[in-house]
């Protein structure tokens, strides 16, 4: 396959950045998208040019490190798939592909396709936990949890924190990410003591990071490689309203 890549290049956070075009001539349909970039990068290095910097690590779709927007969709066109698991057979010979970093004000570009997603960590640090110290826990089976709620919590907990939700959102909103964690812990009895405090603190942090508001486009759900449902955003709204109304 022959593929034309139009890639965002930006040397540093302060650099203005520009698109550059690369022609990849020997692309195998069995390659993953990142393996194609690997090969392009090897070529660039041998030509003395700096390779395209992109975030990646586990390459099996679970660590959430990979992060490009491919032809205007975070993680590319395939449903429920991270960039590292996207294969070139999903494209056609001769295709032109735009590769851009995840765009949102709260995700500043560090270099090329690498952005700083520290905002997500700070949202978790604001309240995405159960405050239990190591060692004090009771027996795990002392707290029965209905399978239904355990499963729902797991649905929400499947989030890999990749940032595609905010990158897909025309408002640069991190609602789906925040909602997934708030919902997970709200479904479980362990999360109850801090339920209201958590909702208020995490959402406050989310807003301070400069993420936008939800206008129910549901682009986040469409881009989410783990198919986390927007109904968790509805749940978060509920949690937040209750917390604001009834918190001390």
């Amino acid at each position: 396959m022959k593929i034309k890549l139009i890639v965002w290049r930006q040397n540093s956070p302060t650099d203005k950045g520009r698109f550059e075009t690369y022609n990849c001539d020997e692309v195998s349909p069995d390659m993953s998208f990142l393996e194609m970039l690997d090969i392009l990068n090897e070529k660039l290095i041998l030509q003395g040019q700096e390779p395209i910097a992109f975030d990646h690590d586990c390459r099996e779709g679970i660590c959430g490190a990979c992060s490009c927007t491919i032809n205007g969709v975070p993680h590319g066109p395939e449903k429920a798939t991270t960039t590292c698991q996207l294969h070139m057979r999903k494209f056609k010979d001769g295709d032109s592909i735009y590769v851009e970093p995840f765009r949102a004000k709260a995700f500043p570009v560090i270099r090329d396709l690498i952005v700083d997603r520290g905002a997500y960590d700070r949202i978790i640090a604001a309240g995405g936990f159960v405050s239990v110290n190591t060692g004090g826990a009771q027996d795990a089976n002392a707290l029965p949890i209905s399978k239904h709620y355990a499963d729902l919590a797991m649905d929400a907990a499947a989030c890999i924190g990749c940032g595609a939700c905010a990158a897909a959102c025309p408002n640069g909103a991190a609602m789906l990410f925040t909602a997934a964690k708030i919902s997970q812990l709200a479904f479980l009895p362990q999360g109850q003591p801090e339920r209201k405090k958590r909702a208020i603190a995490m959402i406050k942090q989310m807003e301070e990071e400069g993420f936008g508001a939800c206008t129910n486009y549901y682009e986040c759900e469409a881009a989410c490689p783990k198919e986390i449902s927007v109904r968790f955003i509805a749940k978060m709204n509920r949690e937040y309203m209750m917390a604001r109304m009834f918190s001390e």
Binding site: F129, V130, A137, Q138, A140, A150, L185
Partner: peptide
């Protein structure tokens, strides 16, 4: 015990 207390959603029976 510790992980359950943290809210890790382990698989459960009915």
């Amino acid at each position: 015990d510790q992980c359950v207390a943290q809210g890790v959603p382990f698989a459960r029976e009915y």
